[in-house]
Write a protein that binds this DNA or RNA. Structure first.
Length: 190
DNA sequence: ACACGGATACTA
DNA sequence: AGTATCCGTGTC
């Protein structure tokens, strides 16, 4: 089932949860999303909109579902989707995939053989799918080819605190496919 | 444990 | 122009 723009016209927590299990495909490479994080424009000091005026402008101007891609630590592109038009605006960060498409091509781009290491992190999966800064602001729902597909059956989900942040580090806004071996880090039980 | 690396947004 | 911070990864 194809994901439409309306999917992203809800709050970030709902979108982050329901993206787990969806297949993300770009140019014959991709996988099933097994880890996401929600970021909210309101009451979330970890969201880019809290410290970046350019990010607030992005939310104001772009339609829901737009790709928000930025360079972190000077080396790794991180992929988010803009969530807008529901109870809260914000972003969903895509943190890990279970590889399904173009595995040999992703192995080449990553210089890695082990399947569980290809897309098990937000910086890894963008490199595997060849996503970079040119994707920032791109509206995938204006294109003909869908890049997101909903699963026939929603997977079981675990939640916990987000990874790698300093502000609002206590909020349990990380979502993973329960028991997946393709995560960026193990989920703490709660 | 540590180095790597650059955009963004501050200060002045 | 100088500084602080940042949603990470591979190798040490």
């Amino acid at each position: 089932m194809k994901i439409t723009r309306e999917f992203f016209q809800r709050d970030p927590l709902t979108c982050a949860r329901e993206l787990i299990g969806c297949e993300l495909v770009w140019n014959q490479t991709g996988g099933v999303i097994v880890e996401t994080e929600a970021y909210s424009v309101r009451n979330d000091e970890a969201c880019h909109t809290f410290t970046r005026p350019s990010s607030r402008g992005f939310v104001a101007e772009k339609p829901p579902g737009t790709a928000y891609v930025y360079l972190n630590y000077g080396m790794y592109w991180l992929l988010n989707f803009l969530v807008k038009g529901g109870a809260e605006d914000g972003f969903v960060l895509i943190r890990a995939l279970e590889p399904t498409r173009g595995i040999e091509e992703m192995r080449r781009r990553r210089g890695m053989n082990e399947l569980k290491n290809l897309c098990s992190g937000p910086g890894k999966l963008t490199r595997a799918l060849a996503i970079d800064g040119t994707f920032h602001g791109q509206d995938f729902f204006a294109a003909s080819e869908p890049i997101l597909h909903a699963p026939p059956v929603p997977p079981e989900i675990s939640t916990g605190p987000r990874i790698g942040i300093t502000r609002a580090a206590d909020l349990p806004w990380r979502f993973v496919a329960a028991g997946s071996r393709f995560l960026s880090a193990p989920m703490k039980n709660r």
